[in-house]
Every structure is written in C-alpha cells, then in structure tokens.
Lab assay of single mutants.
Amino acid sequence: PKCKGCFKAIVAGDQNVEYKGTVWHKDCFTCSNCKQVIGTGSFFPKGEDFYCVTCHETKF
C-alpha cells in the first residue's frame, strides 16, 4: 500500500497508522490544523481531516 501523506510505499517494518482502509506512515499522520505528528496518539476525525486533541478542543 501507499501512504496517503507522502504517497510512498509502506513496506514491512514501517510503523504506520490505518484508519478506515487508508494507511499513513506514522510520521505522515498529522493534525490538519497545527501539522504536528499525531502518529499513534489520540485524534478526532472530521470529514477528510484529522485533529490532535489540543486543536480539536480549541477549534470545536
């Protein structure tokens, strides 16, 4: 599969995040607002966007 963030291949051994059939490298899975890496931490999906806890609390 290819990462939705950088469009490069995800190979065995890469740390990745999967959500609803889409996959990202862990470092490519970032907050849509502040761009900080969410990685495998908590996040809030809103449509096609993903927000870290801090930005979600501030924005919504």
Rank of each mutant, 00 (worst) to 15 (best):
V11N: 04
P45Y: 02
Q36V: 08
P45M: 01
P1K: 15
C31D: 01
V37G: 06
P1W: 14
P45S: 05
D27W: 08
D27G: 11
K35V: 05
Y19E: 15
S32H: 08
F50N: 12
T40R: 08
A12T: 14
V37Q: 02
F29L: 13
E18V: 12
K8Q: 10
K2R: 15
V37I: 11
Y51H: 06
T30D: 14
S42E: 15
I38V: 11
C31Y: 04
I38K: 02
K59V: 14
T58S: 13
H25M: 01
G39M: 06
G13Q: 09
K26D: 12
P1C: 15
K20T: 09
S32T: 09
D27M: 13
T58A: 08
C55F: 00
V11I: 06
T30V: 13
F29V: 12
T58D: 12
K4V: 15
K46G: 06
E48M: 14
T54S: 11
F50S: 04
F50W: 11
E57F: 03
V17H: 10
E57N: 02
F44V: 08
T30Y: 13
T54M: 08
G5R: 04
D14M: 05
W24M: 07
C6E: 00
S42G: 12
E18C: 09
Y51A: 02
P45F: 05
T58F: 01
Y19H: 09
V37W: 05
C3T: 04
T22G: 12
D14G: 11
S42L: 07
T40C: 03
C6W: 00
E48V: 06
K20M: 08
N33T: 08
Y51E: 04
F29T: 01
K2Y: 15
S32P: 04
G21P: 02
K59G: 11
C3K: 14
K46N: 08
Y19N: 01
F7N: 05
F43V: 13
F44W: 12
K59H: 10
S42F: 03
F7D: 00
D49Y: 10
G39F: 06
C28T: 01
E57K: 12
F7L: 09
F44C: 09
V17K: 06
V11W: 07
H25T: 02
I38A: 02
C3S: 13
P1V: 15
E48R: 12
Y51V: 13
Q36A: 09
T40P: 06
C52Y: 00
Q36C: 09
N16P: 10
A12P: 07
F7G: 08
P1N: 15
T40D: 11
C55Y: 00
G47F: 02
F29I: 01
Y19S: 13
E18R: 05
V53I: 11
